[in-house]
């Protein structure tokens, strides 16, 4: 097994397995530990400049990557006109810079604010580092290896799909420049870390809130049938 197999075949499968299995186990066995671990209570001003750009930027970029993965045709069609390609690339780059700025603020805040240091675990440092590498390599690629949305659909998309159908083709990415490989490897690292860190909060986005009623009333007792004094038949009771 050479390094490429390790990094681009074994690593992704290990990461994916960890991400799914450990997340489910953690969710079911240690639900208390699943939390976004907000620190807004402790420090709010710097957080605003960090968390808003970072979360929106990174979320939109993730959506873009995901869209390319599930419908690469749509991206290709969109890029049919050069002006639309420029627009997409520019938007992506702007979002990445925005997210990068947010992340820089978050890291600065975590380092300089005593209150935030008090709630910083070693894993937080690891998570921030991995995401930092991810964003920096992403920006680097967007600037240095234009136009990713154009060639990406014929390089990264087939690679990820080959993994998902269990016919891995590591050679698709193995020959790429180091920065691009780093971007890929950082993602598998991210995925492997996911279930062990606060990153799990990503899958807890409470979409169900949109449909649930405003109020929740929970009874411990279930309905049951009882003989009420004086009634010939059992009647249903809400407990």
């Amino acid at each position: 097994m050479n390094a490429d197999t390790l990094l681009f075949v074994v690593a992704p499968y290990v990461a994916l397995t960890l991400a799914i299995v450990v997340s489910v186990l953690r969710w079911r066995r240690h639900p208390f530990s699943v939390s976004a671990l907000s620190s807004q209570l402790l420090e709010s001003k710097k957080l605003f400049w960090g968390t808003v750009p970072f979360h929106w930027g990174i979320s939109l970029i993730l959506v873009g990557h995901f869209l390319a993965l599930i419908t690469p045709r749509s991206i290709e069609l969109w890029n049919g006109e050069p002006i639309r390609l420029y627009l997409l690339e520019l938007t992506g780059l702007a979002l990445a810079l925005w997210a990068g700025f947010g992340l820089a603020v978050l890291i600065y805040r975590r380092v300089t604010q005593a209150r935030i240091r008090a709630v910083t675990s070693p894993m937080d440092v690891v998570v921030l580092s991995v995401i930092f590498v991810q964003i920096v390599t992403g920006i680097w690629i967007a600037v240095g290896y234009r136009y990713g949305s154009f060639w990406g659909t014929s390089v990264f998309v087939p690679y990820v799909r080959s993994l998902l159908v269990f016919q891995p083709e590591p050679e698709l990415v193995a020959a790429l420049p180091h920065v691009l490989k780093a971007h890929v490897i950082a993602f598998w690292t991210f995925l492997a870390l996911f279930p062990f860190t606060r990153l799990v909060h990503i899958v807890t986005v409470p979409i169900g809130y949109l449909t649930r009623p405003w109020q929740r009333v929970v009874r411990l007792q279930r309905e049951r049938w009882v003989y009420h004094p004086g009634s010939p038949r059992p009647i249903r009771k809400n407990r």
Binding site: L37, S38, L41, Q215, L220
Partner: peptide, 21 residues
């Protein structure tokens, strides 16, 4: 967060709380 049906006490289910605050 929910209200207990039997006595109306409002409680946070800590296992479901995700710190959206």
């Amino acid at each position: 967060i929910y209200k207990r049906g039997e006595d109306g006490v409002v409680l946070v289910n800590e296992d479901k709380c995700r710190a959206w605050r």
